[in-house]
């Protein structure tokens, strides 16, 4: 396989993830959001698998499998059921309008490129480009977390952020413990989802339901 092709494909996949992150930012319907997220995870799993093949690192296939099974299938399905069961509104209330959010997101991508660009080229270009995309995904995920009032979409934001991390980790050639880390993160996400179900988190995490109010606790004003 030509080195150029390997580069192009991984570039394509990583770029696809950034694009999907923008789609997540843009989306204001709950179920579509979950579907786009599933797609996001799918692209991640493809990208990881491609890296496993390119780097000749078979353990990365495990990570790819986890991404595919857990993130692209189990979690979206679970969240879908939660949304239905808890009767959460199907539209997502954003804090700032979609337009400004997207513009800001573009700025973030620019920022990530700007900070990664000066990295000396001797660390191979693949890692460098991947890194810029991964950083963009992370930042966009965070942006999504803070521009949505709704807990489910915030979780989706967190998970897309985490996808960015896995992308970065697999892009780093020969990095040990990647599998362990991805497992650890999956546990974390599972915790969050369970947390939503069990505690029906409201107050501080804004709302699952937009009608719930902030009831300040502990130390009331």
């Amino acid at each position: 396989m030509a080195r150029g092709l390997a580069f192009d494909i991984s570039h394509l996949l990583a770029g696809g993830m950034v694009l999907l992150s923008f789609a997540l930012l843009y989306q204001d319907r709950m179920f579509s959001l979950l579907r786009i997220y599933a797609l996001h995870a799918l692209v991640l799993s493809l990208s990881v698998a491609w890296q496993a093949w390119v780097q000749g690192a078979p353990h990365l296939y495990v990570t790819a499998t986890i991404a595919l099974a857990f993130k692209a299938i189990v979690i979206p399905v679970a969240l879908h059921r939660i949304v239905v069961r808890l009767g959460i509104h199907r539209t997502i209330e954003t804090v700032v309008g979609v337009g400004p959010t997207i513009l800001f997101g573009l700025g973030l991508v620019g920022l990530s490129v700007a900070v990664i660009l000066p990295v000396t080229a001797e660390s191979d270009a693949l890692a460098r480009e991947d890194l810029a995309f991964a950083l963009s995904v992370v930042l966009l995920g965070l942006l999504m977390m803070i521009t949505r009032r709704n807990a489910v979409s915030q979780i989706v934001g967190f998970m897309s952020l985490e996808n960015g991390l896995v992308l970065a980790a697999t892009g780093a050639k020969g990095m040990p413990l990647v599998v362990e880390i991805s497992v650890a993160f999956s546990i974390l996400i599972a915790f969050i989802v369970i947390g939503i179900v069990l505690f029906r988190i409201r107050e501080r995490f804004d709302t699952v339901d937009i009608h719930a109010l902030d009831s300040f606790r502990g130390e009331r004003r």
Partner: peptide, 10 residues
């Protein structure tokens, strides 16, 4: 974690 990955890359 992101920082950790970056350190490894460096």
């Amino acid at each position: 974690l992101f920082g950790t990955i970056l350190v490894y890359l460096a």
